[in-house]
Design a protein around this nucleic acid. Structure first.
Lengths: 348, 348
DNA sequence: ATGAAAGCGCTAACAT
DNA sequence: ATGTTAGCGCTTTCAT
């Protein structure tokens, strides 16, 4: 066993309380005692044991994070933002993944709760009806959703918090961008709606844009997220020349890039034979040729803001202030990245 | 405060020891008592507090992870592998980043140690002379290096463990691939050597291949990792037609893709005017056109193996077995991904 | 099979 | 300014 506060105290010839004070409130210790204790600490290589501290304090200065996967750059960026912000604010991060399995969400959260994290940042499949979120609320554990976008209720109505872009409006912008390039037969390629409520919101944005342009929307194509081949779906999509889309709006960039690869494999010339628009704005999309046109979400900032929001909640709970005020739903600005993956349609 | 084992005991009319037994060794409790206690647990929504358990047990069933950044997909994949393996083996993950700052390494580790993680998986700037690793060793904390490749000593000589590919041999393979395509003026584009010992090993592999081909190696170009523009460097590299390389070997894929973007911006046609070979084999590289030729590392597997190795160490320490035997350095197989980013040089 | 009690490392009254 | 002590939640001897 490593040295504890006790051995430090013994070696320095003081009580354990004095050592504790030096650690937590150095001002309350005389200069010479401090000196002595510091020496003992150095000599023993003492390092405070957070487990003891946490047990006593009832808080761990640790936040739990639950994300669908790290295979999608977007979540890696978000976690990066979370970790940076947490560290800057002297919190540690305990991280877990659900692999997009809604069933994993509750296990993940249970584990974090057993570790007594102070709060949780998470992205769930569907925030609107989610037993895990209900549990968190019931147990009064502060949590902040990322990417999931809470409904636009009167401030604080749900008592829940989310940090995201306006998925629906952003998707609408994306489709408008395609429309402005002359496309009319635009089809949406989406991750599974039941694994991502964002995908559904983006589809609604697609419908908005198509509707506003008085165009008949086409049925969405739902693909397994991160499936690298969906040749059959593409074949079918391309088969009828009359219904064949000229542009694809994809619910995320990974999907968009996979689709482009698959379409090329089928012999299409891109963007000549098909324009492709993504969503997420992953950095790599800007490096490739053609540049992947996309809606840019500030993923790292989403993580950063989520941390600050969560710590805000923890703070006011510490001070036992009145229940959450202000907007529970934070909507961050998105932007449009145009790129060569979208080409103007002849005749525009 | 949430219910503790104590309230459960009281409600069930048993002692706290009995509740603890049910939790840890259900066989030692009579069926009817178990029944009673289970009911109280359910009724109170009791969840064991790992903090208490950890304090008592002196172990946290948590592993600490220190990686340079998540902005490089390779590390995100590795963390993904770590998290998956850890969860399957009932361990939690506490995660931290150094932003490639060697100075951050020790802080990161100190924090994890304060949390009393059972062991640490980490990637450091330079594994051969690293105060943090020395500290870990001195304090007898089990750790496993990822990506850093320990020297090939007699088994267990250093008592340290690493999981990586054979960076030097892999780089040599990559350069041989370029040579086989007819390239002779091959230049290496690298992340900073002092931020990544892998980059240095890969440079040695470059020298090996060039030497074996009896070609004069060119001086490496060291770039800040993840710098997205290095136009000046490229301009200079291209300026002298006689010394101008026909192929670039990049120490990682992010760099390779950034370079391709920058070269295109300078008006080059790729791969006609320059072949580019990467290292890492990030999945996205296979989706783009041209496909990024690269050395594929099994990043997720590196994470997985690191976890298993670390838990093996923890286990044998629990049983107080003799010091680590077997190879400390684990070298996983790499493979070559050919792609259109490398084109045969005319005249081959 | 079950209970009583000690103690893991630490902090925060409370006392001096 | 410093010491004494209780106790956070849990596991684990040791009794019974």
């Amino acid at each position: 066993m490593r040295p504890s506060i006790k051995q430090v105290a013994t070696l320095a010839g003081v009580s354990i309380a004095t050592v504790s004070r030096l650690l937590n409130n150095p001002g309350a210790v005389s200069a010479e005692t401090a000196e002595k204790v510091q020496r003992s600490i150095a000599q023993l290589g003492f390092r405070p044991n957070f487990t003891g501290r946490n047990l006593r304090a009832g808080s761990s200065r640790t936040i739990g994070v639950v994300l669908p996967t790290l295979a999608n750059t977007v979540f890696a960026q978000c976690l990066q933002g979370i970790e940076l912000a947490a560290r800057a604010l002297d919190y540690s991060v305990m991280f877990t993944t659900t692999e997009y399995q809604p069933a994993e969400e509750s296990d993940a959260v249970e584990l974090l709760l057993a570790h007594r994290v102070d709060g949780i940042i998470l992205t769930v499949a569907d925030a609107s009806a989610n037993a895990t979120l209900d549990l968190l609320e019931r147990e009064d554990i502060p949590f902040v959703l990322t990417y999931n976008q809470l409904p636009d209720q009167p401030a604080g109505a749900s008592g829940r918090f989310s940090v995201s872009v306006d998925n629906r409006a952003a998707a609408c912008d994306a489709v408008n961008h395609l429309l402005a390039s002359g496309h009319r037969r635009i089809r949406m390629l989406s991750g599974r709606f039941d694994a991502s409520d964002r995908a559904m919101q983006r589809y609604l944005g697609y419908l908005d844009a198509m509707g506003a342009a008085r165009l008949e929307p086409m049925p969405p194509i739902e693909l397994e997220l991160h499936t690298l081949t969906a040749a059959a779906d593409y074949q079918q999509m391309l088969s009828d020349p009359l219904l064949r889309p000229t542009a694809l709006f994809c619910s995320n960039d990974m999907l968009a890039m996979s689709a482009m690869r698959d379409l090329r494999a089928l012999g299409l010339q891109l963007p000549r034979d098909m324009s492709v628009m993504g969503f997420d704005g992953i950095p790599i999309g800007a490096l490739v040729e053609p540049v992947l046109a996309s809606v840019v979400q500030p993923s790292e900032q989403i993580g950063d803001v989520a941390v600050r929001t969560l710590l805000g909640l923890l703070e006011q709970r510490g001070g036992s202030v009145a229940p959450a005020t202000g907007a529970g739903r934070q909507v961050l600005a998105h932007s449009l990245r145009s790129g060569g993956s979208v080409s103007p349609l002849a005749g525009v």
